[in-house]
């Protein structure tokens, strides 16, 4: 298996997503890539618009859900479709965890031909962020379609 990557997992009504990498930040980036790949053909999108995202949560799993749901909401409010996300910082704080990331994409109008499916939300179903065998980090959940 590649040191970092992502995949979707079969779920009858919705879709499971899983991202993995050497650090939680990589796993979060990959989980986001899996989700964004459901929304549109990412390779067909440009990156002319960017949005900064900052979210906090008490635990890493909560942070994953906050992060993925922030991507959904920001894209919706700004009428954007994201092609890629880079995690700028993911760190433990006194209150729990915090993430700062930059999402890049194009306007909904430009993305129209590449659109696939609407993702409604990242749910706490099957959600977890954990380190496997002391090695790679895995971030996963089910997204509501």
């Amino acid at each position: 298996m590649e040191p970092r990557g992502h995949e979707t997992i079969d779920h009858t009504a919705d879709m499971g997503i899983r991202g993995w990498g050497a650090t939680p930040a990589e796993a979060f980036e990959e989980a986001a890539a899996a989700m964004l790949g459901l929304v549109a053909e990412r390779s067909a999108l440009g990156t002319s618009s960017s949005v900064r995202i900052q979210r906090r949560a008490r635990d890493l799993t909560g942070l994953l859900l906050e992060f993925l749901n922030a991507l959904i909401a920001e894209a919706d409010v700004r009428a954007l479709v994201f092609a890629e996300v880079a995690v700028d910082a993911l760190s433990e704080r006194s209150f729990g965890w915090e993430i700062e990331a930059t999402a890049k994409g194009v306007s909904m109008a430009e993305a129209r031909a590449a659109l696939l499916i609407e993702v409604k939300a990242a749910t706490c179903c099957g959600a977890s962020v954990r380190r496997e065998n002391g090695e790679r980090w895995i971030a996963r959940c089910v997204v509501d379609l």
Binding site: A57, G62, L65, E66, I72, A73, A121, A122, C124
Partner: peptide
């Protein structure tokens, strides 16, 4: 539509706590 999606999202963390 999006309003319902966001209500679910907002209260997911509230109900987890």
């Amino acid at each position: 539509r999006a309003l319902g999606h966001q209500i679910g999202t907002d209260y997911q963390s509230v109900l987890r706590r």
